[in-house]
Amino acid sequence: MTSSTPSPRLPWVDTARGAAIVLVITHHAVLFTTAEGLGHPAWTAANETLRLLRMPLFFFLSGLLAVRAVHRPWPDLLRRRTTNDLWVYLLWASAAFAAFTLLPYARDDVPPGPRGWLDQTLLLPDNGAWYLLALALYLPLGRLTRAVPTAVLLPAAAALAAALGPGQLVRYSFVWSDLLTLFVFFAAGLRLHGPALRVATRVPGPLAVTALAAATGLLALATTALGLTQVPGVRLLVGAAAVLAGCAVAVRLAPTRAGRALAHVGRRTLPVYVTHEIVLGLLVLPLAPAAGTAAGGPLSLLAPALLVAAALAVCLPLRGPLARVPWLLHAPWAAPRQREVRPTVGVATVPGARRAPDRVRGA
């Protein structure tokens, strides 16, 4: 039975999720500007470095807030979460496929040549909604491994990711090559949620947190500069540092104006996540005529930041309209009569606490 009293909020988790989704949008903004001939070396280098940081943090937070889900009965988990995530993924991946069939663009992280809907959505997925596909796989896996001790599960998952994550798979689909590695962070969030919440109350002062963030950034930069990203275990090490630094920075940043602004985004990650790639593809079109002459110049330096700001301005207000259209943010069979906030994409609350009903599931 759902309590009518709101559960305790974790503002720093909302802040961290907001920062992670902004980094995801930035990643795609750089890809779009580069595809239009407006690439800047500084953005390219930054994007390669941030590639190692943003998704480990995102999936750790998702695991942190998925504890209730993996303890649900199997029918409930499959109906309300797994098949629901798969529905939303297929719906928005299909929308992106249609959009970029009409507005094609080149990317250097997907296989060349013509590819159909089945390839781009399921066989060799390369669209911006793939996070939901990963969740649809991770949640049942988290449920299946509930009885496995944490001291066994996390080292085993890390060893498997280190052995099989890098290598040939990356040539065919960056999604499949990342799934093993990112499951480690999702599982860590599931299993270490108690210690993580306790540690978050004892984060050191601003100087120490700044030093940790700087050291993590330098580690990621050195990893990409030295070409070590495909060395087994390196991405896990950098990702672990990203989780520690990202959570510590979010705790310190949460009470500030910037932290509250990021938390506002973090409470609306689902509608932003599923729409931002299509929105960016449309927003970048007016910049196309400047391609070539502006490459490497001031416009190419500003273009990704302008696109991110514009995409947020468009995507954030879409939350209400999308929620009012049936089945855009949830599957027909997964819509409850009293919709709850989904813990992996919505308001951050203490795992295990009771949650008040909310108008918009997945808000």
Rank of each mutant, 00 (worst) to 15 (best):
A188D: 01
A242I: 05
A258M: 12
R257Q: 13
A245F: 03
R260T: 11
G189I: 07
T275Y: 01
R260S: 12
H276S: 02
A241M: 03
V203F: 02
L218C: 09
V243I: 02
T256G: 14
G205C: 12
A258W: 14
G205D: 14
V272P: 05
A263G: 15
L228R: 06
A200K: 02
G233C: 00
A245L: 04
P204Q: 10
L219V: 09
L207V: 15
G227Q: 08
A258K: 07
V249S: 07
A222D: 11
R267N: 11
A263M: 03
T210D: 07
I278C: 04
G259P: 12
G266P: 08
H276P: 02
P204H: 08
G246L: 03
R198G: 13
G239L: 00
L253N: 02
A250D: 00
G266I: 04
E277I: 12
A208S: 14
C247E: 01
V251E: 04
T229Q: 14
P206F: 11
L262A: 09
A248C: 14
R257H: 13
A211Q: 04
A225C: 08
L192G: 06
L253V: 00
T216V: 12
A263C: 03
Q230G: 05
A245D: 03
V279G: 08
R198C: 08
V272H: 05
V272W: 06
G205E: 13
A208M: 13
P255Q: 13
L219A: 15
Q230H: 11
A241D: 00
A200T: 06
V199W: 15
L190D: 04
L262N: 08
T210H: 10
A196C: 08
A250V: 00
L270D: 04
R257E: 11
V203C: 04
A225I: 07
L218F: 03
L207F: 13
A250K: 01
G239D: 00
G239Y: 01
R202M: 10
L262R: 09
P255A: 12
G194D: 13
A263E: 01
G189E: 06
A258C: 12
R257C: 10
L207Q: 14
A225H: 12
L236K: 00
P271I: 10
L270E: 05
L207W: 15
T210I: 06
R235C: 00
L280F: 13
P255L: 11
H276E: 02
A220D: 07
L218G: 06
V238M: 05
R267D: 10
L236T: 00
L244A: 15
L212V: 11
L226N: 13
A261Q: 11
Y273P: 04
R260M: 07
V265Y: 06
R202S: 14
V209P: 10
V238T: 14
R202N: 08
A225W: 08
L221Y: 12
R257T: 15
L244V: 15
V231Y: 00
R235V: 08
G227D: 08
I278M: 12
P255I: 09
L270N: 05
